[in-house]
Amino acid sequence: MFGLFWLVWILFTTFSKGLPALHWTLFTKLTPPPGSDGGLLNAFVGSIIMSAMAIIIGTPIGIGAGTYLAEYARHTKLGETIRFVNDILLSAPSIVIGLFVYSFTVRQMGHFSAYAGGIALAFIVLPVVVRTTDEMLQLVPSAMREAALALGVPQYKVVKQILYRAAKSGIATGVLLALARISGETAPLLFTALNNPYWSLNLNQPMANVPVVIFQYAMSPYEFWHQLAWAGAFVMTMLVLLLGILSRTLLVGKRVKNA
């Protein structure tokens, strides 16, 4: 009950402060300098672009690694080590990931960029997808694998055509969860993509994104910026909650099917 109390308080605040600031200009105007009108368009677009980059980079590697863990290394020492390291990566402070990507991307390139931001987010997507894929593939009953192998199907086809199809919704849930997570992450973007007050689709330059804009605006002394920050926070929370509920319904469907 106590837990629900805090949830309600926080959500209520986000609603009450964010809703009044919601205006369709939020999605059509760019981030303004203090004192003038504006919206969060470039931030939303930037976040979408970098999240897409992160998912495109992180998901294949994550599914690959998860497949390795579930199919080839279920009880080996290498597998256990990788699982351990993956868990650490999963729970590591995201600011550490930001620093790491800063060192090898921004330092090398000489400037902040959306590429760096996308890569940083990809490192957050990776462990989530690895873990979910590993667990979902392990849930597929061995009888399926054995039947396919008995028919002479090669290993890679077993994985591709049988296991992936069976674990499809579970893996998709993992991707959704990863997406929900990166939608709210600020720290990795602080030192990689930075922020951009202007409209820019150039992946080689700093790119606007919602969390950093919220951070900047909320810590500022300007009232209008505060309002925009709340509106952005509201949209972000809604997105994360929606993704959470979506992934939950996907997963429940899968559990019912397997039971």
Binding site: L7, I10, R181, S183, G184, E185, P211, M236, G244, R248
Partner: peptide, 11 residues
Amino acid sequence: IDLLAGIPSII
């Protein structure tokens, strides 16, 4: 409680 866990820390 699970949804509370997913709320971004900046919120």
